[in-house]
Nucleic acid binder design. Structure first.
Length: 448
RNA sequence: GGCCUCAUCGUCUAGUCUGGUCUAGGACACGGGCUUUUCAAGCCUGGAACUCGGGUUCAAAUCCCGAUGAGGUCACCA
């Protein structure tokens, strides 16, 4: 497993929950670092806690790592390295650096005997690439437990053994591991293992400034939530990379994964935690959506609208409305939100008109009626396959002359029955000549 | 509470190492305006921050000390 690469890093999630944003960031930074230096990126599943680890979670992590494009070079499962851990543990026991200790059983699952590290009780000072030197008096740690039995190592021990034997040169992980580091260094020293270079990343925070957690902050901490909502991987990667790191490229904010790899450095990593802001993520996503071919959004629109409306009607409608929707959404799930708010209902059903709303501001009923009649006569002159541009051409001079609001508002409202909608020309083109005239006449009846 | 870490607009950040060009720059969000009526988008524009207190210095967002505040962590979880 040793290699000649200058650096080797690892992302070591425990499969005890769905891949969440904080883990994504740790994985991303490790990936970026490895690729930047042409080193090795190890994905190691820390599943030594048999009771809490689930295959389902492991699958979720792997699947999402691939989806994000964070390909790893080496894959390992800690549970499959049990023999290695047992061997190393025996060495410590044999040398007296660790010992079997009798315990009183306090809670269910506790053992009568566990293995503790003989703590020399020194002051451990280690260098952190982001924070500088950190010193901790390890006497308060006591002879801490490193294994439940000779074949059941605990987190700190298996991490140190694996990092050592897998040749990990840099440990890049969350700030919540700072307090674990002295303990792990003590184990390294007992094992005679070299000390890797540490870099503790600032945490990604929830709006309340506390660490993002499933229990406190719900589904929005899981990457799959954003994936399902239709966020693009490039937007997610770009946004998360810039949370706690800055490439220092003047004012630029949009970067591809390759550019991030090229630019990545530990020197520009932030020390303070950063709040995850979905609004800004949405902005990134819109930026990336613009670069996507419209066909992709079209497929999503068809999928969403088919849930509620007749598929045949959706098929013919969707291509006509895709460009106007494209301007109004930041993420594809917005399409569903719009549908739930009734946004598209007027394409499928005759709108129910509120007579008062047909009239623009202080325009009189008589004038509005005259405008509507005029609009009908204009529309009548159009060929049945007219588009929005054609409709605008015949109607615009009249609207311009009579007052845009006075003419266009009643038309738009008559066609949509809503205070907010696409412009009247687009509506008319989508609805078609016959339906447009029918709805305009209905408005005329409504205000009579 | 012990230990550890952190501290620039509401949020993400540039600037801090190598003090002066910072009356602190950008982005998101928000306010106002413009645009083919509404909504959105776009463009223009506005408000908005160096946590506080001491030092050092001709000069401090930048260096030092302290206070305060915030977070992390204290398992036979990872």
């Amino acid at each position: 497993m040793k290699n000649n690469s200058p650096v080797a890093v690892r992302f070591a999630p425990s499969p005890t929950g769905f891949f969440h944003i904080g883990s994504v960031r740790t994985a991303l930074f490790n990936f970026l670092f490895a690729r930047h230096y042409g080193g090795q990126f190890v994905l190691r599943i820390e599943d030594t806690d048999v009771a809490r680890s689930k295959k389902e979670y492991e699958d979720n992590i792997l699947e999402n790592m691939r989806w994000l494009g964070l390909e790893w070079d080496v894959f390992a499962r800690q549970s499959e390295r049990a023999d290695i851990h047992a061997t190393e543990l025996q060495k410590l026991l044999a040398s007296g650096a660790a010992y079997v200790s009798k315990e009183k059983v306090e809670k269910e699952g506790d053992r009568g005997e566990v293995i503790r590290l003989r703590n020399p009780g020194t002051i451990v000072t280690f260098h952190d690439e982001i924070r500088g030197d950190i010193s901790v008096d390890t006497t308060d740690l006591g002879d801490f437990i490193i294994a439940r039995s000779p074949t059941e190592p605990l987190f700190h021990f298996s991490v140190v053994v694996d990092d050592f034997l897998m040749g990990i040169t840099h440990v890049i992980r969350g700030e919540d591991h700072i307090s674990n580091t002295p303990r792990q260094i003590l184990i390294q020293e007992a094992l005679g293992a070299p000390r890797p270079i540490y870099a503790h990343l600032p945490l990604i925070l929830a709006a309340d400034r506390s660490k993002l957690s499933k229990r406190k902050h719900g589904e929005r901490v899981a990457l799959s939530y954003y994936k399902q909502a239709g966020f693009l991987r490039a937007a997610l990667i770009n946004y998360i990379a810039l949370l706690g790191w800055n490439p220092n490229q003047n004012e630029r904010e949009i970067f591809s994964l390759d550019e991030l790899i090229h630019l990545f450095d530990i020197a520009h990593i932030q020390k303070a935690g950063a709040i995850f802001n979905e609004e800004k993520l949405r902005w990134f996503n819109r930026e990336y959506m613009r670069t996507q071919p419209p066909e992709l959004l079209l497929q999503d629109i068809v999928k969403v609208l088919s849930k509620r409306y007749f598929a045949g009607a959706v098929e013919t409608l969707a291509p006509k409305i895709v460009s106007s929707i494209r301007e109004r959404v930041s993420v594809t799930s917005d399409v569903e939100t719009m549908m739930d708010a009734g946004e598209f209902s007027y394409f499928f059903e005759t709108p129910v008109l509120d007579a008062k709303k047909i009239i623009w501001k202080d325009t009189s009923t008589e004038t509005t009626r005259a405008h509507l009649e005029k609009i009908i006569s204009f529309v009548t002159t159009l060929t049945s396959d007219f588009d929005a541009e054609k409709a605008k051409m015949v109607l615009w001079p009249y609207a311009e002359h009579q007052g845009r609001g006075a003419v266009l508002w009643p038309m738009r409202y008559a066609l949509s029955g809503r205070e907010k909608s696409p412009d009247p020309f687009t509506l008319a083109a989508i609805l078609g000549k016959e339906e447009t005239i029918k709805r305009l006449k209905a408005a005329l009846v409504a205000i009579s």
